[in-house]
Design a protein around this nucleic acid. Sequence first.
DNA 1: CGGAAGATCCTCT
DNA 2: GAGGATCTTCCGG
Length: 196
Amino acid sequence: MPESPYFPHPTRLTDDHLKIFFERDAVLVARDLIGFDLNVAGCGGPIVETEAYRPDDPASHTFRGPTQRNRAMFGPPGSVYVYRSYGIHWCLNFVCLPGSAVLIRALEPRLGLATMQARRNSIDPRQLCSGPGKLCAALDIAIGLDGLLLDTPPFALTSAEPATTATGPRIGITKNAEMPWRFGLAGSPYLSRRFP
DNA sequence: CGGAAGATCCTCT
DNA sequence: GAGGATCTTCCGG
């Protein structure tokens, strides 16, 4: 069972908490984030699926050093990195140690359900945020939020008690694909995919 | 400067 | 389960 005894739960994370929690190995942060509540301008819910990316990882955007696109991944711990995926979708990451980040892959849509349903053109809660691109569409996340801190609007992040997590290989990558750096809330119906 | 690959999603079969 | 949409990024030449 993961432990994150850095502050009591639930805590709405402010600057001190962000540094304490995110200035760590992205793999640990990815695991500990499961269950944390993400609120983006009144929409969101508990995070149920994450993936870790590190600079020593060929699958990471930072593997070959800083570029224009990935510069936010070298920003302060607890800021966000937003990038375009396949020319169509946006993906949201939380920055950890320099050059590392956690991809937010899915959450349980709880707050602002009607707004998210309208943005996604879907009614089924299981279809709203069950994937990194879907999640950004539902929460209206785009490049304009790149680099912002998680304790500033439109973001708010609230901690939660450690959850029982499932672990497995990351999704949709070809390099370093065997590393088990995907984490999920065990048994959640809001995952992008089941765990093996 | 060209081109291939890409941390995805939707539709159709 | 396969294939297409769609376009930015980055690397090689």
